[in-house]
Design a protein around this nucleic acid. Sequence first.
DNA 1: GGCTTAATGCAAATCACTTGCAATTGTTTT
DNA 2: AAAACAATTGCAAGTGATTTGCATTAAGCC
Lengths: 152, 152
Amino acid sequence: MIGIEQRVAIFEGQLKQAGLRMTQQRRLILRILAEAHDHPDAKGIFTRAFAHDPTLSLSTVYRTMKLLESQGAIERHAFEDGVSRYEHADQQHHDHLIDVETGQVVEFSSPEIEALQAKIAAELGYEIVRHRLELYGRKLSKAGRKRVKKDV
Amino acid sequence: MIGIEQRVAIFEGQLKQAGLRMTQQRRLILRILAEAHDHPDAKGIFTRAFAHDPTLSLSTVYRTMKLLESQGAIERHAFEDGVSRYEHADQQHHDHLIDVETGQVVEFSSPEIEALQAKIAAELGYEIVRHRLELYGRKLSKAGRKRVKKDV
DNA sequence: GGCTTAATGCAAATCACTTGCAATTGTTTT
DNA sequence: AAAACAATTGCAAGTGATTTGCATTAAGCC
């Protein structure tokens, strides 16, 4: 996990490289994203950022998300409700489990599943470019739940 | 695989049960779906149906898709492009592999992956309600399967 | 053939997201 | 530091998919 300042600096470098500029708006949105521990959508990011800078517009958020995605700084996910949700991309690959009751998103990863996916694709004559795996689930009651170590 | 007439009859029964009516439009859309061997979207269904009945409207297609989905007669999928695509639901569960170049959809199923999904969910304290697994891939050339690719 | 009311077609409305454009601001130049 | 120049922004209007209000049409029952 790298810090906000580092992330901003890295991104600023990428921008310069491409002849682009580091603006107040981009800095702000980057900070909002770094501080986010969930998977906010454009409106959510806008709301949080708007609290710090009431002159910010929603279109700038959309434009910035697109830019950040193209630079590989964030990942975009579209779960079942159709709206795009974002998360920063400095962590390792993972998939998502969405609580159908609360909408809460839990991250997980499974090398076994990844391996099976690759095997299936190969059998069908394909190589995987990317994939989307989302589990929609309901919390088990204490009684039915297995004991697992709590993470994050 | 059941026939079109049977499917229409079954659906008509379900409708009657709910105090709803079997209309020409619904019959037509149902037939289009039964004949479809791909995963058409609303516009695609509309186009095909329109050829048989030029008075049909797109909103009726949307309303019918919603109705059919609520009756469990069809399944709706939203792949990466965001538009909803449909397929009839009398077949066994399966997931999809989408050719990133052609958009072609290949169906597959993997009990092993399903089992792993259930295991992972259980470890996180959840039971799976449904899931979404999509592989986006590129066709392997015969040559490409055997040797390392050397193109740019 | 009527009667009741679900269903349809059409146009207007949503919703998430994008875009044209004039005004603004970051960065470079002098 | 000020000018110069293009990237960026805010706002409003535009998209594209899907939904909805409403007057009209047509199933299903007598």
